[in-house]
């Protein structure tokens, strides 16, 4: 058995008296997709925020490729190759795909041999290449991302993460706000990330999506891990039962 990319061991997180997470463990391997399921308030968001550096855990350890890590900020988690795509995507709608991929780390070139200017050519090429890797073909590379559909925008957010060589992608309800064809496209995207050897954690309420793409399903219930199943060894009914209890 290879070493997991990510190993969460006995993590607890409390908000005042609320036990948002209680002794939760899970792991994630390269090329694997883990679905995180659970009712509202089960602790799914808290768990991914602990992994992505937003929350510090009160107990337990998080190991990356075998080494325990503690990070002070989401930026440090990102430096370790963990990229989180929140539901709001956090794109700058007025900027192009390339400008969004490079936001905060824009490449420069010298115009007339001396004047530093933004390298829009490089940004556009990177955007095209990244979107092609995700099997999303766009030709309007200079258009603002507000001109694209929900699924395409999701692809831009994912593209930004993989361009910077994320090893672990965490997605909070990536299909929730999309129409059915776009949902399929995002599911295909997650499959292609898996083929590229990334580890993916995604939160979803949609059992169809979960069974379509997950290698394992981790179910949380009121901060406690209620169970972990492989899709071909369980049923939708069982997952729902784990989610709601009883």
């Amino acid at each position: 058995m290879t070493e997991p990319l990510l190993d969460v061991r006995g993590v607890s997180k409390y908000f005042g008296g609320v036990h948002a997470l209680e002794d939760v463990s899970m792991d994630l391997h390269a090329g694997e997709v883990v679905a995180l399921a659970g009712d509202n308030g089960a602790g799914k968001s808290t768990l991914i925020k602990a992994i992505s550096g937003v929350h510090k855990v009160d107990r337990g350890d998080i190991l990356l490729e075998g080494k325990p890590v503690t990070y002070e900020s989401p930026q440090q988690a990102r430096d370790h190759g963990i990229e989180t795509i929140y539901q709001d995507l956090a794109l700058a709608d007025n900027l192009s795909i390339g400008a969004n991929i490079f936001l905060g780390r824009e490449p420069k070139r010298k115009a007339f041999g001396f004047l530093p200017v933004l390298d829009r050519g490089l940004m556009a090429d990177a955007a095209k290449e990244t979107m092609r890797r995700l099997d999303f073909h766009v030709d309007r590379l200079s258009a603002p991302v507000s001109a694209f559909s929900g699924g395409q925008r999701q692809a831009v957010a994912i593209g930004r993460a993989i361009y910077w060589n994320a090893k672990i992608l965490i997605m909070d309800e990536p299909t929730a706000a999309l129409g059915v064809p776009e949902q399929r496209k995002v599911i295909a995207l997650i499959k292609s990330l898996k083929e590229q050897g990334k580890g993916v954690i995604f939160i979803s309420h949609n059992l169809g999506d979960i069974f379509a793409v997950a290698d394992r399903i981790v179910v949380l219930r009121r901060g406690i891990k209620a169970g972990e199943r492989k899709p071909d060894e369980t049923t939708g009914d069982e997952i729902v039962r784990l989610m709601v209890g009883g």
Binding site: R78, A90, A92, N94, L103, G104
Partner: peptide
């Protein structure tokens, strides 16, 4: 570039490490 990003989405600017 960051001025445009800030105007469109402060959250996007912050999460990009700006």
């Amino acid at each position: 570039q960051h001025t445009y990003a800030l105007g469109a989405s402060r959250v996007a600017a912050v999460r990009s490490g700006i």
